[in-house]
Design a protein around this nucleic acid. Structure first.
Length: 595
RNA sequence: GCGGUCGUAGCUCAGCUGGAUAGAGUACUUGACUACGAAUCAAGUGGUCGGAGGUUCGAAUCCUCCCGUCCGCACCA
């Protein structure tokens, strides 16, 4: 009940409905204002109305047909509007159409209830939720000793947007990350570096270079499989892993040093992407404790042995065998996740734990959560795996192992250069070189993040650089461009958000449509947040920009017929800009003032 | 084989917690800059919503089966 016009309508309607309920001998509290609020939807087109009330539930309660109830309530609402000054000013028409009541607002109603709260900032401070459990959202689990690629970007954008959306909606959110800084991939990287690398260590971009070491190591190891060298290689890898586990030896020293290079790369990327974590959990932090924990449970007889390894058998529940200790006594990914899940709840007293991880890990998380449950961890039910589909290349899956990745830095560089060459270099004589760089970077962020977020999480993204650099149509830069134009017109005609304006003059169809659309901002954001679907906000913002462009095309601002109309149109332009800017910020996308 | 994902316009996708005439982008065909920014706008062509049943007053949306697709299924993460 945060949107003022919906609130006004639902509070009026509920009184009328309750009168009918009592008359029909039904309990008055069979329906609440909240129920009515939820049943208020957008009609399929604006010609019908700005808001519609579907009478299905009400009709059921009254034991009458929906069209009959719509007729009845529409008449009651009309009468109410005729008597009530406030309603009379805000509501232009009420019409029953089949099972719906279509409501049209007056220009003044839309301006008063939609534009004014945006202008004074109330819209963006509205309380959208009541129950807001403390949640931790873990996202971005890159491995050290590998290079970050475009696939990692989807996870990062998604996790960050969800954190932002939920925080805006009033939730208490902690963001965490869980980099994989131990494991065989590290050993393979160090092995190659130590025994086969002939290059000298670069001064810059050590993290990316390290990723190449891993890739080369992996390929060489595969080549040597089946040769006499295989046995020798295995011995060395085991020795490396042992040293890492016991935290001493030359490999351990090399690990400490190289690990920092990777972390530096991650931090650079997070800084670029404006992504922030409240806590960094490293796999190396939980590694040895996780093994102790599992051994303890095993000693208590809560786990089973199978083929020399220890774990839990969920095969009769179609979840396979969850392996927790390998036959050599070392742990696995699941081992660490079992330990980490407990820590999160203990460290921060959270009520819900969300994991933003690739959907290929679905079975893994099912097993981990089930294991937690079997081990008596009550909060297992509060753990949730938020899945998304992965990013692949036109010729198939990306893999650091094979070395066929598109590094994130390559995407960012290509995008920035493309934007400068195609659009920004034309301003070389007007703007400083610094501004051109800054704006190119902001637009690149818009293109990349919007591209990662606009597609629903359950669909995979096929990454093609040529397609990604096309910035027309539904793209981040399209929305940013609309904002820049709004900004430019506001500057040209100077607009004061605190100045009064005449509210009943915005009567053009494209003005009404735009205002009606702006009305829905918080509703869309809340929906987007609670369903973990940033894509919903993406398409809303795209629509906002499109509707603004139509208005901008249809309605002259500078040469408006009257000064009042000009002022009101400036208010509408400003409001649209504010919604776009806030909306983009919830997706982690900056809004340049000009571009 | 078992489990899961997806299947909507030529292509890429919205719509899926059941509700009004299935929408965008792109491509293609047109039109609009002496203009508040053309990275724009306007118009047109284009759909048995994979198939078949079922539930319902009402199904792209829910259920069942089938077909196609991709993913996962113990010592990697």
């Amino acid at each position: 009940m945060h949107e003022p016009l919906r609130k006004l309508v639902s509070q009026t309607l509920i009184k009328l409905i309750q009168t009918q309920l009592v008359a029909a001998g039904v309990a008055e509290d069979a329906m609440s204002a909240g129920d009515v609020y939820k049943a208020l939807v957008e009609p399929p087109n604006t010609d019908l109305g700005h808001l519609a009330f579907g009478c299905f539930i009400t009709a059921k309660n009254l034991k009458k047909g929906p069209p009959v109830v719509a007729q009845l309530l529409a008449q009651e609402l009309k009468n109410e509007c005729a008597q009530n000054v406030i309603l009379k000013k805000a509501i232009a028409s009420v019409e029953a159409a089949g099972p719906y009541i279509n409501i049209k607002f007056t220009p003044a109603g839309l301006a008063d209830y939609v534009l004014k709260p945006i202008l004074n900032g109330e819209t963006f401070k509205a309380q959208l939720t009541e129950a807001t459990p403390k949640m931790m959202i873990e996202y971005s689990q890159p491995n050290t000793h590998k290079e970050l690629h475009v696939g990692h970007m989807r996870n990062m954008c998604l996790g960050d947007a969800i954190v932002r959306l939920l925080r805006y909606s009033g939730y208490n959110i902690l963001a965490s990350t869980f980099p994989g800084d131990v494991g065989t991939h590290v050993a393979k990287c160090l092995w190659y570096m130590k025994y086969h690398n002939k290059e000298s260590i670069p001064m810059l971009n050590k993290g990316a270079w390290l990723g190449a070491m891993y890739s080369k190591g992996n390929l060489l190891l595969e080549d040597q499989e089946g040769t006499p060298l295989e046995e020798e290689n295995k011995k060395i890898l085991t020795e490396i892993l042992k040293q890492l586990e016991h935290k001493n030896g030359e490999y351990y020293d090399l690990w400490k040093q190289t690990r920092e290079w990777s972390i530096e790369l991650m931090k650079d990327v997070y800084k670029w992407a404006d992504v922030h974590f409240d806590h960094w959990y490293f796999e190396s932090d939980v590694d040895s404790d996780s093994i102790k924990t599992i051994k303890k449970y095993h000693a208590e007889g809560k786990l089973v042995e199978s083929q020399g390894a220890i774990g839990l058998d969920f095969s009769n529940e179609n979840m396979g065998f969850c392996l927790l200790l390998k036959s050599d006594g070392t742990g696995l990914y699941a081992t660490k996740d079992v330990e980490l899940a407990r820590r999160k709840f203990e460290d921060y007293k959270i009520e819900k734990s969300i994991y933003v991880v690739d959907q290929r890990q679905a079975l893994h998380f099912k097993q981990v959560f089930k294991t937690l449950e079997v081990l008596g961890f009550n909060q297992a039910k509060d753990c949730f795996h938020l899945q998304y589909n992965y990013v692949e290349l036109p010729d198939g899956a990306m893999s650091s192992r094979k070395g066929n990745i598109v590094p994130l830095t390559a995407l960012v560089e290509t995008m920035r250069n493309h934007i400068k060459a195609e659009y920004l270099n034309r301003y070389t004589n007007e703007w400083t070189a610094e501004e051109i760089e800054t704006v190119a970077d902001q637009v690149a962020k818009g293109a990349i993040k919007y591209g990662m977020l606009k597609q629903d999480t359950n669909k995979k993204i096929v990454f093609d650089m040529n397609e990604w650099t096309k910035l027309d149509g539904e793209s981040g830069p399209f929305i940013q461009y609309s904002f820049a134009r709004i900004n430019s017109v506001l500057k040209k005609f100077t607009f004061d958000t605190k100045a009064e304006f005449v509210t009943d003059v915005l009567a053009h169809n494209s003005e009404l449509k735009l205002m009606q659309h702006l009305m829905n901002f918080n509703t869309v954001v809340l929906n987007s947040a609670e369903n973990y679907k940033p894509a919903a906000l993406c398409s809303y913002l795209y629509d906002t920009a499109k509707k603004f462009n139509t208005f901008y095309h249809d309605c002259a601002i500078g040469t408006a017929e009257t000064p009042d109309l000009k002022k009101a149109r400036l208010a509408l332009a400003y409001s649209t800009g504010a919604v776009i800017k806030h909306g983009l910020s919830l997706l982690g996308i900056p809004a340049p003032e000009r571009m």
